[in-house]
Design a protein around this nucleic acid. Structure first.
Lengths: 217, 217
DNA sequence: GTACGGATCAACCAAAAGGTTGACCGCCCC
DNA sequence: GGGGCGGTCAACCTTTTGGTTGATCCGTAC
């Protein structure tokens, strides 16, 4: 099928340069375009299509400093007609990131600390319509589907969000028009599900897993 | 002085490839060696010295997946005889990271989302024995010295970081080899400076003000 | 050399949070 | 229409945290 044409999406110029160097060195890869965020990626894709140029794989970071994030961009790309496969290449292997990416329609999920050969293989797999998952990611997905009982209820997530802003139990109770006893009950449930025993570790874990946004917005 | 010889320290092969490509493209730079963590960096430095090879600048990431972290490595390098300048190149611009790096003896602090030209300039500055700071970083340091009474001490920031990981006072005390009483004293000072009265709001505020990074690393 | 600030520790008390048991209600699902 | 689950509440007790006062040690700045 000739050379593989790739669209690089990452907000770090250093990383884009690295991927370009790494991918074009040995294999028959070429970089069709680069973008620093999701919006730019969609623009580039549209531009290349009007020019009649092919894009075989989109290599996408999830965390972008500004502009559209990688998950949103992936979902948008997958809604195009005959969309190119999107391979996620990111730093973090958190549950929420992975689940969000897969839900958005990503064809694979690789980590940036992977050796070049693994990344090249993943790009080839994605281009061939196959799924490419980093070993860590695959393991996490497997363990996740086997234990769904740890999921928090919406009320519990709501509590967790207020918790993260630094409110006391009494303040949370007043905010939600419930009693302090109920707040404590919810917290005990939350701690149990997250496997922690105090509010700060609950916040730390929930933030890590992207169950809530970073404290104080 | 001829070409500038650089030691790259970053746990991501992609980033190392990017820096290599970016730095060697136009300027008279050459990559003396690469390392994936602090231990490897020290080994490479020792190896190059026994070979009589010069290293003009160490380009160092702070966050390493495994092995010795960037701050520890920087401090270790600066303890060598006639140590090369260490230029930090990392993703985060939080107070905690910056202060730790400066204290460890870094010659500069740049962010990975900086344009290539800025990074090249910073490497040149560092090699010339000058200090190179990203604009954001410079601003933070300025504001800190202009209002020292509300500024947290490095020890306090360190405590705050441990706090955000969900550790109890006792656990923090053990981690830092100090008594629980001292931890409580520090916390009271932190609360006073931040204008809060409990640990969760301290974390929320410190995260908002970018004194620390999002909890749980 | 002394004054100051950072870091360390202790003792003490008050307040908040953590943990347990048990209970009631409303809703949805077989 | 009974069982399960999510949400609500109370009483009780233990542990942790918050707040205060006061003290020592060690650098550095003046």
């Amino acid at each position: 099928m000739g050379e593989l044409r790739i669209l690089l999406v990452d907000d770090h110029p250093v990383v884009r340069a690295g991927l370009r160097a790494m991918l074009t060195e040995f294999e028959d890869f070429s970089v069709a375009a680069e973008a620093a965020d999701g919006d730019a990626a969609l623009r580039e894709l549209a531009r290349l299509r009007t020019l009649g140029e092919r894009v075989d794989v989109v290599l996408m970071d999830l965390q972008m400093g500004a502009g559209m994030d990688g998950v949103t961009a992936t979902a948008a790309i997958r809604k195009l007609e005959s969309p190119p496969p999107v391979l996620i290449l990111t730093t973090y292997d958190t549950e929420a990131d992975i689940l969000a990416a897969v839900e958005a329609g990503a064809s694979g999920y690789m980590l940036k600390d992977a050796p070049p050969e693994q990344i090249r293989q993943a790009v080839l797999s994605a281009a061939a319509g196959q799924t490419a998952l980093a070993p860590k990611v695959a393991a996490l997905l497997m363990s996740r589907i086997s234990s769904p009982e740890t999921a928090l209820t919406t009320r519990e997530v709501q509590l967790l969000e207020l918790l993260a802003t630094g409110l006391t139990n009494r303040a949370i109770a007043r905010r939600l028009f419930i009693s302090e006893a109920t707040v404590k009950t919810h917290l005990v449930h939350i701690y149990g599900k997250l496997g922690v025993d105090n509010r700060t570790s609950a916040i730390a874990l929930a933030t890590q897993r992207r169950i809530i946004r970073t404290p104080g917005q």
